[in-house]
Design a protein around this nucleic acid. Sequence first.
DNA 1: ATGTCAGCCGGAGGCTGA
Length: 267
Amino acid sequence: MKIASYNINGIKARLPAVTDWLEEAAPDVVIFQEIKSIDENFPREHFEDMGYNVETHGQKSFNGVAILSKLPLEDVTRGLANATGTGRDGADDEEARYIEATVVGDHSAVRICGLYLPNGNPVGDEKFAYKLRWMERLEARAKELLALEQPFLMAGDYNVIPQAEDAARPEDWRDDALFQPESRGAFWRLQNLGLTEAFRARSQAPEQYTYWDFQRGAWQRNDGIRIDHFLLSPQCADLLEDCQIDKDVRAREKPSDHVPIWVSLAA
DNA sequence: ATGTCAGCCGGAGGCTGA
């Protein structure tokens, strides 16, 4: 089972690019971030015609996530439960950043958690505190799912640069929310629960990025960062076959600032 | 190099977010 994640930065502007990539990469499942669309305006039928079941969690103008799957999607939930478990409709969950669904493969069912983590800039602002609270809520959800001892993965745009080697110019990110010790620490805490970061489990290669800013010729200078990640539960990590970044997509016409990343599971 | 892009409102281009 091939599962991809792609921050598309607006479905309206990206439909041709996304369609071309989807036809080539042919993932069984793909999670999108930043669809920047309400559910009613998402081109559901376009993707259904390509053989995908479509579940969206959108909002006007910003954010928005979706799961597309060639296999049936079960038990779809939208939003992230807060750390105290009192509900999914709190003030910290107003933005459309999280969706879950179960995909049943030939051998194993996998719970897919698609996420678009808050950017958090500027540091010191309420936005940074919101990012850290969001990561606490994600950790709480990870603990709930781990207790079930089933295959699951949490994937998407984490807006976290895990280590200095995950940035071409780490010194440029020293004061940025994506590279703060608190942001990175929260990301390590997820892994310390027992989640496996799929890309680094497969490769220690340097200069492996998933995002290049539109500004300052970042792509042309390969001034990128690795911020799109797959975290796998132990039962899911046992199924991991491969994890790769579709870097070439960034060089095409009208690209997103992110590129797809995907895992292949024996599921 | 303040050198980009997308979406919104509103009917141009300024604002927001990234």
